[in-house]
Write a protein that binds this DNA or RNA. Structure first.
Lengths: 208, 208
DNA sequence: GTGTCGATACCGACTGGACGGTATGCGCTC
DNA sequence: GAGCGCATACCGTCCAGTCGGTATCGACAC
């Protein structure tokens, strides 16, 4: 992956290092995932980050700005990657498979962000919610058009609308944060392959 | 007044009729779905139900009791139906298909309850959360064993664990509340059939 | 059929604390 | 000496839960 640049070095717990805005977002993500957005006070966030409220309100206009930024950044990254895979080489099935595996794997890497967003997006003020919905729409549409491409090429079944397929798959993916626990018996890559296998081939045994 | 009182007539908007506990749950479900659990005050709930806080705390020990009851009742119903389908007649595939269609359709009928629960379950106190998790585990296990049955009969593929299949499918189902809107172009039954078709046969075109 | 008792169903004012957000100040850098 | 990056103190609001009180009703006695 050329265009996808590496982010911060893979240090274990970067809580008291680095630029403050990122530190606050990291701490807030963890706390929101643990105790919920409304169950976490601004005071707790800044205390965990080793600063005070003045610092936070210097960088973020409101508490829900944290929530917005948390998911906005993840979504931007995933959208960029999806578009790279979708616009790449290979058949529609190959590209869809690669994109689907990638979105699951990056989702596993950011389970907290996903958890927090899908629990609390309804708490965002209207304008921010609209902004996120627009970005998600763009993401959804790109995936959907990939499915449609495969349908028109005769690779995918056409009796199920591509829109439904996309909702079906992303629904399953966005819910992994409710059951998957890192450190369990299943690795992220394993689950990704299973999920994509189910998406493409379904559950029924097809004697080849 | 006899002991066995009359049930409420099937009127459309039964908000100010019927037994108070059910009335409060119905009103709370609607408000929680609209404005979130934390964004809805007890005062608003009781006002919408036409009573006062004293009445609510007469029937419910705490605000989160409402949340618990809302999903508890739905889950009990769906579990009962799942077990009926699973223990019924037919091949494993036929029974799984019928059970899967049913769970989606009942989910569409109770979208508000699903929305509220999956947004706010983390706000439940520990004991109630444990209770719900136990019930959901039972539900999950019954579906999983149905998948396993089909795997052992050679009807379903065995290279994907039944546990993963169950998570995959329920994940997709539990997320419908984030995109499906009643009154849209797609009916609940249509979507149910699409989803079950995707679960069983997957996306790939299999020339028969 | 009248009076008493107890229970159920509900009312509504009040409290105590928490929480998001702000106004101001202060040190350090350039 | 100006402005950035934060600290500290404070405010107004809101809200879950409480608690003493009232109304209604059935059961039972006489």
């Amino acid at each position: 992956m050329a265009g996808v640049s590496e982010r911060q070095p893979p240090s274990g717990a970067a809580v008291l290092t680095g630029p403050l805005p990122e530190r606050l977002l990291a701490v807030a993500t963890r706390l929101f995932a643990e105790k919920g957005f409304e169950g976490t006070s601004v005071q707790e966030i800044v205390a965990a980050a080793g600063v005070t409220k003045g610092a936070m309100y210097h960088y973020f206009a409101a508490k829900d700005d944290l929530l917005y930024q948390i998911y906005h950044r993840l979504l931007m990254m995933q959208t960029g990657r999806l578009e790279q895979f979708a616009d790449g080489q290979g058949t529609a099935e190959e590209r869809l498979r690669a994109a689907a595996v990638d979105v699951i794997e990056t989702s596993f890497l950011h389970l907290d962000e996903l958890t927090v967003f899908f629990r609390s997006m309804h708490l965002l003020p209207k304008n921010k919610r609209r902004a996120i919905r627009a970005q998600r729409r763009r993401y959804h549409e790109r995936f959907r058009s990939l499915v449609e491409e495969g349908q028109q090429a005769g690779i995918f079944r056409s009796d199920v609308p591509a829109d439904i397929v996309t909702h079906f798959f992303f629904g399953a993916v966005h819910q992994v944060s409710t059951w998957y626990r890192a450190g369990g018996p299943l690795g992220a890559h394993t689950v990704s392959e299973y999920y994509v296998g189910l998406l493409l081939d379904g559950l029924r045994h097809t004697p080849s």
